[in-house]
Simulated assay, not measured.
Amino acid sequence: MREICVIGGNRYFGKRLIERLIAAGDRVTVVNRGSSAPPAGTVHLIADRDDEKSLEAALGSRTFDVVVDQVCYTPRQAEIARRVFAGRTRRYVMTSTVEVYEYEDSADPVGEDAVDPRTVAVDTALPWDDPEFLESHYGEGKRQAEAVFAAAPDFPHVAVRVAHVLGGADDFTGRLEHYADRIRTGEAIAVPPVNRPATYIHVEEIADFLFWTAGEDFTGPVNAASHGTLTTRELCAEIGAHLPDGRTVLEAVEVGEVSPFSFRRSYGMDNSRATRLGFPFGDARSWLPRAVAETLGKDH
């Protein structure tokens, strides 16, 4: 039986990861602020991860085989986690994001070496506690968090750079509903004049990936994305299939906010490292109908 700690993980693919760990016979400890109960069958520790003393007190003398950190958004949080979990775990898995590549505008899928966290400058003095600043610097916060872990060679860690996640009736983001609402009424959907494709991953697949990663021994950044890219038109076509009386109107806008999942730059990730390591990704176009049906089925 492995001892696994999951920080956060109460919803969406984190919840599915915990279900997989429990089904495999792992003993799972969930750390959160106590605002919601973790899945049944887990040990629940209440702590504020931003408060080092609170986190240390909650953990006590516990040690783990693997820690999966679902909610590390800033270098400050990473520094606290690195100090607290040093000597407590053999492996630390941080859930990162495709957004770390926000400055890598390439027509080709980007590999992990495009952003080497060992070369990323860390600035903990930035206003990371300001929600508006954090939201507008999401990719930068994740980049710097990765850099904090990468600066400690004696702290074995993985940064899972997750593609855009689709699927599940419990998708809380509202991004597919954004399209469905507009297709149903024929309202214009704002997109860039040149709308780039992106890589995606199904909610069940990223849960599978994190579960698999917990059992492996590789380290460093790794891209997690299904094979192939999807465009806004492909998403709209699949959503439109569920709304036969609707109408899809894409309106190109030069400036201003555009719809979610429409991009002025490419967000394609190269998943070959994970594939070589042995993870069998699915094809995004194959699971897209399922993802849309799951997310919209509850309302449409």
Rank of each mutant, 00 (worst) to 15 (best):
Y179W: 11
R161C: 04
R273T: 11
E257P: 08
E52S: 15
A237G: 10
V71Y: 00
G297C: 07
R143C: 08
Q144L: 12
E177K: 15
G228A: 12
L288N: 00
Y73I: 05
A188M: 05
P244V: 10
G228R: 03
A190K: 14
D283E: 15
L17N: 00
E79W: 01
G240M: 08
W128A: 02
I189E: 06
Y12N: 00
R182E: 04
A252I: 10
T74R: 02
V43P: 03
T119W: 01
D65Y: 04
R285N: 10
P289Y: 00
D181C: 04
Y200T: 07
T63R: 13
A37T: 15
A147F: 00
V31N: 02
M1E: 09
R20S: 08
F133G: 05
G87P: 13
F281K: 10
G25Q: 12
F211V: 06
E251N: 14
R76K: 13
I201Y: 00
P109W: 13
D208P: 09
V6K: 01
V222W: 02
Q77D: 14
D245W: 02
W287F: 14
R285C: 06
T42G: 11
V93R: 00
Y12C: 00
D299F: 11
E112S: 11
A274G: 14
G228D: 05
R33N: 08
D113Q: 12
E146S: 09
Y179R: 08
P193N: 04
M1P: 08
V43A: 08
F133P: 03
Y138Q: 13
A147E: 03
Y12I: 00
N223R: 03
M269W: 12
D130S: 11
V222K: 01
A237Q: 13
P156T: 08
P156R: 06
Y101V: 13
E112T: 15
E234R: 13
G278M: 07
T231V: 10
E254H: 11
A47P: 09
Y179L: 11
A47Y: 01
A145W: 00
A114H: 11
R76W: 07
A293Q: 02
W212S: 07
P38D: 08
P260D: 14
P75L: 03
G60E: 05
T199H: 10
L45R: 05
T89A: 05
V93M: 04
R27Y: 01
L235A: 02
E251V: 05
A180S: 13
F64E: 06
V6S: 05
A159V: 02
A188C: 05
V93D: 01
T97D: 14
N10I: 13
D270G: 05
E216V: 12
D105E: 15
N271L: 03
A58M: 07
E135N: 14
L243S: 12
R33M: 06
F211S: 12
A224M: 13
E132P: 03
F281N: 05
V255G: 07
I189Y: 01
I46F: 02
Y73H: 14
T275H: 05
H242Y: 08
P193I: 09
A198I: 09
W212F: 09
R247D: 10
G168C: 02
I239S: 00
